[in-house]
């Protein structure tokens, strides 16, 4: 039964991925812009090619990328290529493969975004729960409005403030980049320390901006849970307050948070575009932004495909582990 269940989920996942891939195929194309021409216009502006070469070159490139073939063929090729993880060549950076572009950008994003999102999740959930539990505490009472303000601020705004204060004014941290650009050795402790040093401000901006969101939703859930009959009964049992808080309160309030975390995984990449732009961080959001600017659809396809997979699989993983967290979603064993 568990196997057929898993199978059903996998089929559903495949359907979701296929739908998203199809949309992804159509959207850049209806803009009607040809990235090859735009790329050439760019180089043409800087002088060089003549009219005759230009047309010939466009035709050759169109043939190279298969844009001269019927749209249905292109679509089928597109599906086939992606499914076999053949992401092809970038149009804008022609000789470079999309796979390589992504491979060099992805670790940065995962390192920065995933870590800071998880930190924000844990920090926010704890803070949110505590503000409800110690309602009369002055210190925590002070946190609530702060949390609300932070939750309302977008990542990049926090980022700009941080850059201004800690980089421009105080000069404690670098304002941009993933590491010192002049560096030649890209491994070893020295390098990782440098990376961590560069990650402080962008990471902090994400943590600050999203901790508030997690804290607010946790706070809301905690308030709801506090009104539940089982909390009253736990109280009537004279249980340790710590147990009532953790095993009865937090344990139940955290459930919707976990679902939200899975949905948030997609945002880990897309929502961070602006942070990566503000900090000129060499991550995947930055790559996606550049590709969209010149409608480099092979790269867009590649990046979005990776995004779709991330979201799809994080939902699947969540589906699989959720029954461990919430027995009510387990299939009855009758």
């Amino acid at each position: 039964m568990a196997l057929s269940d898993l199978l059903r989920r996998l089929v559903l996942l495949a359907a979701v991925i296929w739908t998203a891939m199809t949309l992804n195929f159509i959207l850049p194309r209806i803009t009607g812009r040809n990235p090859i021409i735009e790329k050439l216009m760019d180089s043409a502006d800087s002088g060089g090619a003549n009219e005759y070469d230009f047309d010939q070159f466009v035709a050759a490139m169109n043939a190279r990328f298969g844009f001269d073939r019927p749209i249905l063929h292109q679509y089928l090729d597109y599906l086939g290529d992606l499914v076999t993880f053949d992401l092809g060549y970038s149009i804008a950076n022609f000789p470079t493969r999309v796979g390589d572009l992504i491979a060099s950008a992805l670790p940065w994003t995962i390192g920065l975004m995933l870590t800071s999102t998880l930190i924000a999740f844990v920090l926010g959930s704890i803070l949110g729960a505590l503000t409800v539990w110690f309602r009369s505490s002055r210190l925590l009472g002070f946190f609530v409005p702060v949390i609300m303000v932070l939750a309302a601020m977008p990542f990049y705004l926090v980022g700009l403030v941080l850059i201004y204060v800690f980089s421009s004014l105080l000069g404690w941290f670098p304002a941009s980049g993933g590491f010192v650009e002049t560096r030649t050795v890209t491994s070893g402790w020295d390098f990782y320390l440098d990376v961590a040093y560069h990650a402080v401000l962008p990471g902090l901006s994400i943590v600050l901006a999203s901790t508030g969101v997690w804290a607010l939703s946790m706070r809301g859930m905690m308030v709801t849970v506090q009104g539940e009959d089982y909390m009253t009964f736990a109280d009537a049992k004279g249980l340790n307050l710590r147990r009532v808080f953790l095993a009865y309160g937090v344990r139940n309030a955290i459930l919707p948070q976990v679902t939200m975390l899975a949905l948030f995984m997609g945002q880990v990449v897309t929502g961070a575009v602006l942070v990566e732009v503000v900090f000129a961080y060499p991550g995947i959001g930055f790559l996606l932004l550049r590709s969209i600017q010149i409608n480099d659809f092979t790269t867009i396809y590649g990046v979005v495909f990776i995004l779709i997979l991330t979201i799809g699989f994080s939902m699947l993983i969540m589906d699989l582990i959720y029954p461990l967290l919430d027995p009510r979603t387990r299939k009855s064993r009758a």
């Binding site: 539940e228 009959d229 089982y230 009253t232 009964f233 736990a234 095993a247 009865y248 344990r251 139940n252 459930l255 967290l325 919430d326 027995p327 009510r328």
Partner: peptide
């Protein structure tokens, strides 16, 4: 109906 913690055996 709701007096028992739904996530604990």
């Amino acid at each position: 109906m709701n007096s028992l913690n739904p996530v604990l055996p």
